[in-house]
Design a protein around this nucleic acid. Structure first.
Lengths: 248, 248
DNA sequence: CTTCGTTGCGAACACTGTACGCACAACGGA
DNA sequence: TCCGTTGTGCGTACAGTGTTCGCAACGAAG
């Protein structure tokens, strides 16, 4: 049995002591979460393991558990950390509809910037809300009450559910595209024949499909933006109706 | 017969041969998917392993790979199998709004019956649509076009995204409740003080929270039903507005 | 009877999340 | 100056995981 790695000195020597060798003075919960997010963004949710994360932090795998109880907890922390990026306009905005739309778009862009968010939300849900997610809800509620909504909670449910559903679906799509290594347009072009054949015997789908095919192959990102905005307008229309019904 | 493993046959003997010992004649993709769904429903997504699934089918783990390329593929198959349970009213329904509402409610009940669905959708998305999910979309499209919508695809986006977002969030919540072993009401009651404290410094959330607290502790399931239905009405209002704008 | 394609599967590989227990730095009091 | 206590890092180990390889056993075909 040959010693394969740096066998720690059986003879205690001054030169063997670590002595401020770390660039990071100590391991830290915040830095762990930050580095986890970097890895998640770069390589996706199934590429993150405690061992890889530890080596990237110049640490041993077991050390992480001094700062984080379990991997799931680390994921919840990462989700809440990322939730801080979502922007919500102040409650006294003159145009509540534009403000809510901006909050929705901000959620979407952060969800697309961190595509793993959908996976975690689908598993852990919003059961234990971290402080940042909480504050996001609070600011949305402030927006809706300032606008005069009788039931701000219901309004939040409608717009937030729509945004979550659309964004996570979109993020999952982008993840599979990224895994393929191709650009989105190339990926679409490659599976176009299969999609056409699959859609062929569904007449109503085929109709809508034919209309959007060109846009999908030329500028898919713009088409996704338009889709998101258009369906969001529908939800906002419903909210406007509720507000008017109360006002009159 | 005590010995069920057919291993000990250094001497080829008639008695050692398996000879129709299986109740299932052969392993089969359909039965694999069915049993996987049973396990997923019973124990959740992280309790399903290829080995456990195989032993439940009186088979070896490696045998499954003769019928299924990978575990992810098995998951996609399970998702599509479950999608067949979703009911959509026929396109010639007199009241399109009631029909869409029924389709939405049917999606929700199947998502709650199979709470793992949210996790898989969050990871795999709707990239490769299986035939059953495809047919669900098609029937929704038929419903919207029959109702006279100018852009059925946009209408589908709005209602489907809302339903996915709400249902998966709800399913994730129910999963964490189930993991706790308690009833939903008990679970809520137990974390009520923590939730109240967390919500205390968010004035707008606290207001809505106070209103729904009693309903949440007495009949949480009914409250969730009501929440889903209420927010769905908002989305449907938005759709109705779109339809009227076209008609006039 | 031989051959062939198909199916089942034991064993192994490369990993995973996490628990245990030791080594060692910092520190406060005697 | 020593001695405990406390908190941190981490080597090692355990119980799993998904998946591959190669072999055995079969039913049908030639």
């Amino acid at each position: 049995m040959a010693a394969k790695t740096t066998k720690p000195s059986p003879i205690p020597s001054v030169w063997a002591r670590p002595q401020r060798e770390q660039d990071q003075p100590t391991l830290n919960r915040a830095t762990i979460v930050r580095e986890a997010i970097v890895m998640l963004d770069a390589e996706g949710v199934e590429a993150l393991s405690m061992r890889k994360l530890a080596t990237r932090l110049n640490a041993g795998a077991a050390s992480l558990y001094r700062h984080v109880a379990t991997k799931d907890e680390l994921m919840e922390l990462a989700v809440d950390e990322v939730a801080a990026e979502i922007h919500v306009p102040p409650a006294d905005s003159p145009d509540w509809r534009a403000a809510v739309s901006e909050a929705a778009h901000s959620f979407r862009t952060t969800a697309l910037r961190h595509p793993w968010l959908g996976s975690v939300l689908g598993q852990a849900g919003l059961a234990y809300l971290g402080p940042n997610l909480m504050s996001y809800s609070e600011r949305l509620a402030a927006l809706f009450t300032a606008a005069g909504f009788p039931d701000p909670t219901g309004a939040i449910d409608a717009v937030l559910s729509y945004v979550i559903g659309m964004s996570t679906t979109e993020a999952a799509w982008l993840s599979t595209v990224a895994r393929s290594g191709e650009s989105e347009a190339d990926f679409i072009a490659r599976l176009l024949p299969a999609a056409q054949q699959a859609v062929a015997e569904h007449e109503h789908l085929a109709k809508g499909y034919a209309e959007t095919e060109e846009a999908a192959t030329t500028d898919p990102a713009a088409m996704r933006d338009a889709k998101f905005a258009a369906a969001l307008e529908i939800v906002l229309d419903g909210l406007t109706l509720r507000l008017k019904a109360t006002g009159s």
